[in-house]
Design a protein around this nucleic acid. Structure first.
Length: 183
DNA sequence: CACACGATTGTCT
DNA sequence: GACAATCGTGTGT
């Protein structure tokens, strides 16, 4: 944050978007908005949607390949008071339990689009404790109307901090390795 | 230049 | 569970 307070959380829910994926912003090629998706991996792709929400993604391949992972929910770990102020909500469960919520809680907006998440100092993702495969649930992605055949939403099963959008589903769990993050 | 639509959230019934 | 709010981006005229 501007005042030096560190805001951090553990990633508990994500969604993948990649080449040939009709639900991906990059499906129809590169545009001014999704340009970062086609750049080098490890960068932050931020975009605005629904009139007032910023979405945070980690670019996962490239250059030249449009792919990214949307950060959908975090278990807040550090700077909860500041997050509460930014969110206008007190309960920990209301701070980062959704893609738009966590962006607001972390005070991230379009100005940070393209930041380096690996070596950056403003915002970054670092390795954490792995989540056992049998604790990683997978379902179709939330809020999309295409690409529903791909179960590319991954979340920590039974974690209270995952977003409300379809917690579980008939789809069983799969593989996956968890890792936390911070800013 | 005009229009339709979101990788959502908060509030109300 | 259902629905309105809100506006930048993408696509078509």
């Amino acid at each position: 944050m501007p005042d030096g307070q560190r805001l951090a959380g553990r990633i508990v829910e994500t969604e993948a978007y990649g080449p040939g994926d009709p639900a991906s912003h990059g499906f129809r090629g590169m545009t001014a908005r999704n340009a970062v998706m086609f750049g080098p991996a490890g960068r932050l792709y931020v975009y605005f949607t629904y009139g007032n929400h910023w979405m945070l993604n980690a670019v996962t391949a490239g250059p030249g390949v449009g792919s990214a992972v949307l950060l959908r929910a975090l278990e807040p770990l550090e700077g909860l008071p500041q997050m509460a102020i930014a969110r206008g909500r007190e309960r920990p469960l209301d701070l980062c339990s959704g893609p738009g919520k966590l962006a607001q809680a972390l005070c991230v907006d379009g100005a940070m689009n393209g930041e380096d998440l690996v070596r950056g100092s403003a915002i970054w993702i670092e390795a954490g404790t792995a989540v056992p495969s049998d604790r990683v649930g997978t379902t179709a992605r939330v809020g999309v109307r295409v690409g529903l055949d791909r179960a590319w939403r991954c979340f920590v099963a039974d974690d209270p901090f995952v977003s409300r959008g379809r917690p579980g589903s008939p789809r069983g769990s799969r593989t996956g390795t968890g890792r936390p993050r911070r800013s």
